[in-house]
């Protein structure tokens, strides 16, 4: 019964947070350096991919989603799915307007 909320309690460890912090700094450096190179239309894809990786680290480690109850992951997936659907619908519309 008590197990449900003791997952997070037993996961306490300083090391992993410092490691993730270093990874986040490395990704920030990467995105800043890569921004100086012109990849054309790919630039925005690379920048967003790096931002998504950083968010993934923050969500799973800092925000404990990795060790959280499965229902939290399902909730977040559904929220993000609808976010993606919305942006796809918006661009399905706007891509007809221009150039």
């Amino acid at each position: 019964m008590e197990n449900e909320h003791s997952n997070v309690e037993h996961a306490a460890n300083y090391g992993i947070y410092i490691l993730v912090w270093l990874a986040l700094l490395a990704l920030t450096a990467t995105t800043a350096i890569v921004a100086g190179i012109n990849f054309g239309a790919l630039s925005i894809v690379i920048a967003l991919a790096i931002a998504a990786s950083k968010s993934y680290l923050v969500l799973t480690i800092f925000m404990h989603l990795r060790i959280e109850n499965r229902v939290f992951k399902i909730f977040l997936s559904v929220a993000l799915l609808f976010f993606v659907i919305e942006i796809l619908l918006i661009f399905a519309d706007y891509s007809n307007y221009v150039r």
Partner: peptide
């Protein structure tokens, strides 16, 4: 606080790093 961090993670490339 982490959510505020994640939002900034996206604002940073979108406003400062367009090339």
């Amino acid at each position: 606080w982490h959510l505020v961090d994640i939002i900034w993670i996206f604002l940073y490339p979108l406003f400062y790093l367009i090339t």
